[in-house]
Nucleic acid binder design. Sequence first.
DNA 1: ACCGGTAGTCAGCGACACCAGGTACTGGGA
DNA 2: TCCCAGTACCTGGTGTCGCTGACTACCGGT
Lengths: 109, 109
Amino acid sequence: MGKQATEMLKGVLEGIVLAILATRPAYGYEITTQLREQGFTDIAEGTVYALLVRVEQRDLVDVEKVPSEKGPPRKVYTLNARGQDRLSEFWRNWSFLAERIEQLHEGEK
Amino acid sequence: MGKQATEMLKGVLEGIVLAILATRPAYGYEITTQLREQGFTDIAEGTVYALLVRVEQRDLVDVEKVPSEKGPPRKVYTLNARGQDRLSEFWRNWSFLAERIEQLHEGEK
DNA sequence: ACCGGTAGTCAGCGACACCAGGTACTGGGA
DNA sequence: TCCCAGTACCTGGTGTCGCTGACTACCGGT
């Protein structure tokens, strides 16, 4: 993926991570791995951590430190009520955008 | 729309404008109006002009100055070959993104 | 003479993904 | 024993992009 794809992630990545957390709690390293498995091979690790710091500061998630058998303790993030709301907002905005763009794509042919 | 939606536009707006230019040449003011009609009511006028400057500098469009009956001359933009390529790339990236996100949306229910 | 619509420009700002590096803990191989 | 790979997280600086709020300029109608 090129620079264009990177730009397109802005704002969207937060929604993606919140959506992942909506299915079950997870920690940063795990989320990064999962994203890579799902095809987002170029997502920088630092990006995910920075994003998690942001959503924590905005109180969209609850955090719990859990010791790991291998390596330093994990910070497990759980989506809270505010996070749910934010996620809903994301889906609304996404649907809006996707609809118009799909229209453009059709109209172009 | 809130700040979230604004962030989501990043990278996408360029694709949208290129897609509009793919249907026919247009000038800035016209594009802004069209975007507003299509539901993007909050797009700042300045944003579109700045974007057009960018795509011109990257040589994705050809420009022609055309006098207007009302007001200052228009700068009419036409998508060129490089612009077409860029647009194709945009559609590829968009499809990729939309697919994964749709998957997340399904999986969440 | 002035105002509103048309048309474009510009400086400064904030948000966010990236890069490159760092810290810290564990277990296994040379 | 020592170092490395894997696990797990953090940080400072960079570039891009959309927004804000201003400004210039041209025209027609009141």
